[in-house]
Design a protein around this nucleic acid. Sequence first.
RNA 1: GGAGAGAUGGCAGAGUGGUCGAAUGCGGUGGUCUUGAAAACCAUUGUACCGCGAGGUACCGGGGGUUCGAAUCCCUCUCUCUCCGCCA
Length: 423
Amino acid sequence: MLTLKFIQENKDEVIQRLKIKNFDAAGIVDEIINLDNQRKATQVEVETFQAEMNGLSKKIGELFKSGKAAEANEAKARTGELKENIKGLDAKLSEITSQLDEQLVQLPNLPNEIVPPGKGEDDNVVVKSGGEMPVLNNAVPHWDLIKKYDIIDFELGTKITGAGFPVYKGKGARLQRALINFFLDEADKAGYEEVLPPLLVNEDSGFGTGQLPDKEGQMYHATADNLYLIPTAEVPVTNLYRDVILKGSELPIRNCAYSACFRREAGSWGAHVRGLNRLHQFDKVEIVQVAHPTKSYEILDAMVAHVQTIVEKLELPWRLLRLCGGDISFTSALTYDYEVYSAAQERWLEVSSVSNFENYQANRLKLRFKEEGEKKAQLAHTLNGSALALPRIMAAILENNQCAEGIRIPKVLVPYTGFDIIN
RNA sequence: GGAGAGAUGGCAGAGUGGUCGAAUGCGGUGGUCUUGAAAACCAUUGUACCGCGAGGUACCGGGGGUUCGAAUCCCUCUCUCUCCGCCA
């Protein structure tokens, strides 16, 4: 969330910049500033009483010790009133604070200046593109190819779990594992330290990265233990650094992680979500960085470049989008998406999303760093990106590489799969 | 799942009602000494909020209670450890 200090000092800028996200912040910002002022006033009031109470208590203690019990008991008379005042003001303070928090979490992150205006995905800006568009006759979509070669089985998944939980079989399973290992090796080569995180997280973690409270319905919730199945490894990996004060010299922190991801996707089924295009469970390799605020945009560029090298090694036609204000997420300041072209579906598929959250997540996480010799800790910046999400990569590989003999495996993957064709 | 023990500063670890934001040791930082380093010695070393400042307030796992006063007593939750059971 945005810091109170920033909102207080830049009220008009906050309202102005959130218009790019099509968010009318005027009411909330006023409410926040009002509540914050009330909070301060109430705090000063309660602390004044507390100071008096502390002094009085000390005095009573001394009186008892020196045997002046009568005087001590006399002094006690005033404490009752003080206690009542403190109790009342405390209640008021926590009421104000919770109202303030409630308002604060409703404010999205400010978009970076270069985020283009727009309502939705049609307004995203193509930054660049590359790779060769495949030329195919009568291209078969992947949902038919997977049946033809018996490598992914949706019906079986439906039987044991439900729609959107496919079973990967034989060379399909092997290809899936190959992609995971390839992505992890690429991340490792680029300097990201691998972690293998839990797939379920607690409420604090969900709040830290911004899934809670706003996107609660998107996550599977194990209610018996109040744990959430992760929608992305971003959640556990970024939360590794919750409530942490790093040394300036430790930045940037770079992690990568493979995980299964779980998304309820409530209400988002419809056109264009056949086959692997949208699943409830899928695999992804995620890259996460914790950065110095002055370096985060440089790092965002490096992360984008990393994703591009992977897509290029897989010989897929790609394009890079800068998301517009209407399509960028609640918590992000700037997001780039990579899409690959799917020949049989004749459309672009999003396979990666790389974002800079600046200090928005860090403020929730209390993720700070302290520069050598400095007294005060400051909020770090967090970033993450998919490198990459598997299902649509799988779809694109199957569709684009189909030929009379079967499906060719991209050269870089052959050492991982142990075969060069699916037939 | 059953029984018991415990949770204190970066770490270890004292502290069972007031003088405790908290002994001591280690670690960190600055300094003295040294050609340099080590050792030794001296100093310093948590976070947040309010305040120009002096200073004030809160925090000893979380929440609540008793009391003029709680790290310390009570209730509750969470977590950790030990033993037993079960088990990949």
